[in-house]
Design a binder for these strands. Structure first.
Lengths: 164, 164
DNA sequence: GCCAAATAGGACCCAAAAGGTCTTGTTTCC
DNA sequence: GGAAACAAGACCTTTTGGGTCCTATTTGGC
């Protein structure tokens, strides 16, 4: 349905809560999975699963043992939304037969749209790379956002497309 | 998985084939569902289903009876990709709790990203509205594309994002 | 007037994927 | 040594999409 998984949505909420609680790199603060579950209203096993995936993606760091917990590895202003989506939903591609894939489609010889989806996928990727998780979580007004670090083209793009 | 349904993919192929066969408004030419199935390699019942949905969306017109068939109602250069996606996948929205939806999420009171997904969805919609079905089907080189009618910003956007 | 061809519309079944929960193991602090 | 918390994986349940089939209706040709 062109929807991303619920876990991705939960992940954004959890990440926002971690930053709100000050569980950032540098200081020693961490936040436990049960604590995040209580704060966000998401079931605790689900929060644990989300944090594990975020840890594997390098977005959070787990501290084991008593008084352990999780902390962010980067401020959310440096985390593009696409990175979270890729961690939970896999590579961003709208169709299977894209990005140079050769096998799998038995109508390849007569398919008139072969390879044509690539710009579409690139457009989606770009749009999602240009929005940081911080932009979803904190500010009250989108025009107050700091521009993301890698691509300064991101913001004008979003602004243009919103006016669709 | 941030994928659109296979039916949407089939729809683009079928639409492209219809235009290729000259089943356009104005002239009397139509193309039958079995004929399209043979030409595209897609199973005939599936093609029939795709055509029914396209007909309900106002993209193709069915002519009943013997020597009947389907024809396009608009040239594909006037059909934004988003229109096809909406017909098969429903409204383009990455999450459930967007666009002013109030009920359904029991953590609404404490959710820090409430309403924040809207610009993201708008960006995706805009990107998909700026690409026509004709752009996916016919040209050999993307820089030869005619600019879509409603929004001339579409092409620069895609070009920028491809360079991500 | 009858038959064949083709769309219209819906119901139905199957398979795959996602969501969520649980269990076990490991680490660290008190 | 015990408790608290993360780490990793297996498992089950539910939902959704994909695909097929059936019946009704319409129209052209004989």
């Amino acid at each position: 349905m062109l929807r991303l998984s619920k876990l991705t949505d939960y992940a954004v909420v959890v990440l926002a809560r971690l930053e709100q609680d000050g569980a950032l790199p540098g200081n020693g603060r961490v936040q436990t999975a049960p604590g995040l579950a209580a704060a966000t209203g998401i079931a605790e096993p689900t929060v644990a699963k989300v944090l594990k995936i975020l840890g594997a993606a390098g977005l959070v760091e787990g501290v084991r043992g008593a008084r352990g917990g999780y902390r962010l590895m980067r401020p959310l202003a440096d985390v593009p939304l696409s990175e979270v989506i890729v961690a939970f939903d896999g590579p961003i591609a709208l169709t299977a037969c894209v990005d140079g894939g050769v096998g799998g489609c038995d109508a390849e010889a007569i398919c008139p749209v072969r390879g044509r989806w690539d710009p579409v996928n690139a457009a989606i990727r770009g749009a999602l790379s240009g929005i940081t998780v911080a932009a979803l979580a904190q500010p009250r007004f989108p025009w107050d956002l700091p521009l993301p670090a890698p691509a300064n083209t991101a913001h004008p793009v979003a602004a243009t497309l919103v006016a669709e």
